[in-house]
Amino acid sequence: MRALAAGELRRVLARRMLRVLTLLAVAGITVAGVLTFLNTEKVTSEQLVARTQAAAARTAACEAGTDPPEVDGRGIDPQRLPPPGSAERREFCRFAAGGVDDPRFKLTTLKGILQGTTAPLVVVAWLIGASVIGSDWQSRTITTVLTWEPRRARVLLTKAFACVVVASAFALLAQAMLSLALLPSAYLHGTTAGANGDWLLSVLGVLLRGTGLVAIAAAVGFSVASIGRNTAAALGIGFAYFLVIENVVGSFLEDFRRWLVLGNAIVLVSGQDSGGEVIGRSVPVAALYLTAVGIGLLAVATMVFRRRDVA
């Protein structure tokens, strides 16, 4: 059993698609880190306060008409501005004189970023699960393996296990790399204020729940492709189900969202009961529901695989 699992892990890792996905992930994370660094700026709290005060003074002068503002570096004819003291003038000045955006990168925003990147990682996990078993059917390697280990349930579940492990590791590594790529921005161009123990726990929670969701996505993608004996079938069914059926049902029947996979996934990733406006669904129940979906589909795939003829 251990040899079979080790072999399957090596086969998944040897796949060209995984290498391509890894390269794309590394490139994307690097670009994200560089862009974040370039778009952030190191300022002290005092400087930020001073900038805020200066902006407030500009706004006040604009409203009073003592300092005609500039828009895009060009002066504006005071005759064309709304009269001082009017609501239109105040609105214009807030826009023209501008507030002050905090240019620092706040480490505490990492939690939201990691939640946001869970969605593409779930798609990648689905792809890994579907393509591994799909290509096994296509290249008939499944037949070769069965002539060495005829216990079909063992073979299929070991393959699914390998996909789940690889997809989860991929997701964890990608999230870890992304966090590392953003650290220079946080330490050199930002602030770690608020990044305390509670925050760290909440980030770990996001990682844990996100990885769990990725594992379930890999198992579901694997199961659907195994039943259809085809990668494209799994991708097509996934696209049709989530983008068409779940979106339509979720849009028209809000009360029903807690029974949809997407609704439960949103609650799980958000980490908040009834998160993402999925009313009446708690995080633990969402986790259990999604796990049941994954295990159920894997059980169906195993049952089908045990009964079907292998070419």
């Binding site: 008939r140 390697t141 060495w148």
Partner: peptide
């Protein structure tokens, strides 16, 4: 025979 195309012949045999 169904073989793993990304792997070498030796690797295919070794894993089986």
């Amino acid at each position: 025979p169904g073989l793993f195309p990304a792997m070498t012949g030796r690797r295919n045999l070794a894993l089986l």
